[in-house]
Each structure stands twice: as structure tokens, then as C-alpha cells.
Design a protein around this nucleic acid. Structure first.
Length: 172
DNA sequence: CCCTGATTCGC
DNA sequence: GCGAATCAGG
């Protein structure tokens, strides 16, 4: 990869528009790294950008995060185990077209689960194969990754009711 | 930890 | 000139 005229032009435009170096790098495609972009910006003398756009822009208000019945007061791993095993057992069944396949290698056991990870249960909770999704949980410490948050909170009226029912049956 | 830009320095 | 590695900061 080299700095062709087109590339430089695009770099100028995107950087001037206020994109971050990594965003510009992504636009320029694989092969151009963030470092490459920053280096070029300096060589071009573009480094004095009147503040970054993101710095000018007032921070967007934090999206309100839905609360989950079982999600309160969870902080340590022990808590996680206690809090989410019931949840796991009562996990809703997803329709095949709702299903997202997470490779086993990316899933995590309950011991590997961290607060920053998606706690969506996957597989049979009574099986040694049982894992959690393990994806990056949503910003602000939400319990699920973006996808599973959607599944958990969005369509869910009746599914959730069913799940809660199941939960109370088993853990009343 | 995720991210940001800045700087250095071997190539 | 180039950009990975590193630094300093949010």
C-alpha cells in the first residue's frame, strides 16, 4: 500500500471532516493502519485540525439501559454465578432465524465470564458444553452484547413472560 | 479496557 | 517518506 493521490485526497477529506485516525484508516481499507494515517497527517501538516469533530460535538446523551429482573447488585464472579444460573436455565428458545451462531472458541464458561462480557447463556445448562456468549457487553456495563440485548429486551413481551414463569416455577 | 493523537526512529 | 512501537492522555 502506498499513498496514491486518491488516497491522500480521501485522507484529507475524511480527516478534515473530523473522522478519527482509526476511522479514516478503516475507510481507506485494510493495509492502511491508524498509525499510517497519523503519520501521514503529520507529514502533510494537517495535524492542526481545529479540535476533533467528536471533541466539538457535545457528547450524545447516554442511552437509557433497560433493567433486568435478575441483574441487580451483581459485581463479583460469585455473584455472577449465583445470579445468572437461573437465568440460564430459563433462557428463551430463539427461532432459528433469530439465532446468531457464536463459535465455541469465543464462548466463555461461567468461570471465565467477566462483567464486560455478554452473559447470554448458550446451550444446555446441564451440559459441560454450556457456555455464555462472551461477546463485548454493551457500553456502560449492560449484561448483554448488542445482539442479545436486542433479543432480550425488544420483541420480548410474551417471551419474557414465559421465561419469568418458567423461572418462578423452578425457583419459587 | 476501550479509545484518542503525538512522537520516535529504524527502515 | 513511511509506519510500528511506544507514549500520554480521556
Amino acid at each position: 500500500m502506498s499513498w496514491t493521490d486518491e488516497r491522500v485526497e480521501l485522507l484529507r477529506k475524511l480527516w478534515t471532516d473530523g473522522l478519527s485516525a482509526s476511522q479514516v484508516a478503516a475507510e481507506l481499507g485494510p493495509g492502511i493502519t491508524r498509525n499510517a494515517v497519523i503519520g501521514k497527517i503529520h507529514r502533510l501538516g494537517l495535524a492542526e485540525r481545529a479540535k476533533t469533530a467528536s471533541a466539538q460535538r457535545p457528547r450524545a446523551a447516554k442511552a437509557p439501559r433497560p433493567t433486568h429482573p435478575r441483574m441487580n447488585g451483581v459485581s463479583s464472579h460469585g455473584n455472577l454465578a449465583l445470579a445468572f444460573t437461573p437465568h440460564a436455565l430459563a433462557a428463551p428458545r430463539l427461532a432459528p432465524d433469530e439465532e446468531v451462531v457464536i463459535p465455541m472458541s469465543e464462548r466463555v464458561t461461567i468461570m471465565e465470564l467477566r462483567e464486560s462480557m455478554c452473559r447470554w447463556p448458550m446451550g444446555d445448562p446441564t451440559s459441560p458444553e454450556f457456555r455464555f456468549c462472551g461477546g463485548k457487553s454493551t457500553v456502560g456495563g449492560g449484561p448483554y452484547c448488542a445482539y442479545h440485548a436486542r433479543v432480550a429486551y425488544q420483541p420480548a413481551q410474551d417471551r419474557r413472560r414465559a421465561r419469568d414463569q418458567l423461572r418462578t416455577q423452578r425457583y419459587a
